[in-house]
């Protein structure tokens, strides 16, 4: 994909150094008998080195599909039908099976949405860490065991636990073990798809703080997906809000919280209690999310948008800069013009 879209232009210059992950115009389709579902439709974003990038949105909007596309884990009926995914300058969509296998986990690792079930029940935690080292680094078993013990210490698990089976660990410990496995090869990007949904709030907080600390210490980038906006704002530097397969707003998390521009983001934030209140999932918006097999024409949010005008039904708004470092896709928002004195600098 050589040609730039409006979305690319909106992102240009955001991250000074070369981005770790650069997704351009990504399109993913699920093939189904009743018709194809374009679950991700023209999504572009960059994640810089050491940046924590959040991805928020209602259930079914396509967040996991993006995560799995970056890991190249999508299987039939899902298919990447367009765009590019560059990791450290290498387009993952060009890699063959064997190259892909070597890239996975070494350059990009993932903590899954269902991290509770991502451990093999018949293998010890230790063996499941060790096989990462023996496969990718041809490391002897003994050395690999020592590294595995260090990794467990990193996430505050006693090295005795190497010999434990997953069912012998609590939910929180299992999750931390998965994080330890994910960090084994020091990947430059860690994808976390709702890593704490299955855990209770206290453990959740615990683990997220630990991740934040590890991230700062080790400096990897994170693509962080969650329903929990308060958690996301707390943890990520920048975030994107996704609606029905498209990004509708991208901004630094603080801006997003204090000054949401897109009507959908506003609705989300409005549906959200303050950080200290009880946690609510992103379901506080009236009406159901759209049927992805037949998404609404024009702006996909128009059937639910309180501000919708006639044009919204026919014109699809592109994601454009609407404030400094702040992109949104809404017809009503005026485009941001870079102030003169700044642009001269």
């Amino acid at each position: 994909m050589e040609t730039l879209t409006e979305q690319d232009r909106g992102n240009i210059g955001r991250t000074a150094a070369a981005p770790v992950l650069s997704v351009k115009n990504l399109q993913v389709q699920y093939t189904a008998e009743i018709g194809n579902v374009t679950a991700v439709d023209g999504v572009s974003f960059d994640i810089g080195a050491g940046e924590v990038f959040g991805l928020a949105g209602e259930s079914g909007c396509g967040k996991s599909t993006i995560a799995n596309a970056v890991m190249r884990l999508l299987q039939t009926p899902a298919k990447i039908t367009g765009g590019s995914i560059e990791l450290n300058g290498k387009n993952l969509l060009d890699l063959g099976e064997e190259e892909l296998r070597r890239t996975r986990w070494r350059d990009v690792a993932m903590v899954f949405q269902s991290a509770m079930n991502s451990l093999n029940p018949v293998m010890t935690i230790g063996d499941q860490i060790v096989d990462v080292f023996t496969t990718h680094e041809r490391m002897p078993k003994k050395a690999a065991r020592e590294r595995a013990a260090e990794l467990l210490k990193l996430v505050d698990i006693s090295p005795d636990r190497l010999k434990s089976y997953p069912h012998q660990l609590s939910g929180g410990m299992r999750q931390r073990a998965v994080i330890a496995i994910a960090l084994a090869l020091k990947p430059s990007l860690l994808i976390m798809d709702e890593p704490t949904t299955a855990l209770d709030v206290v453990v959740q907080q615990d683990i997220m703080h630990q991740i934040k600390e590890l991230q700062q210490r080790l400096g990897f980038s994170i693509l962080f997906i969650t329903h929990d906006i308060s958690l996301m704002v707390e943890l990520s530097h920048r975030m994107a809000v996704m609606y029905a397969g498209k990004l509708v707003e991208v901004a630094p998390s603080k801006d997003m919280l204090e000054n949401p521009l897109h009507p959908y983001t506003n609705a989300l934030m409005g549906a959200f209690p303050p950080l200290t209140g009880p946690r609510v999932e992103l379901t506080g918006i009236p009406d159901a999310p759209p049927n992805m097999a037949h998404p609404p024409t024009g702006c996909r949010f128009h059937p639910r948008c309180p501000l919708a005008v006639d044009a919204c039904r026919t014109v699809a708004p592109p994601l454009l800069p609407k404030a400094e470092n702040h992109d949104a896709a809404c017809l009503l928002l005026p485009e941001y013009v870079v102030p003169r004195e700044r642009s001269r600098r």
Binding site: R106, D131, H136
Partner: peptide, 25 residues
């Protein structure tokens, strides 16, 4: 199962995933 997806994500060799992760269960 999710642990098979994770095994694939870990970049393990297919034979190992097939026997040690899938068939073993």
């Amino acid at each position: 199962e999710d642990y098979i997806t994770m095994a694939r994500a870990k970049g393990l060799r297919p034979a190992r995933i097939m026997f040690q992760y899938a068939a073993r269960n």
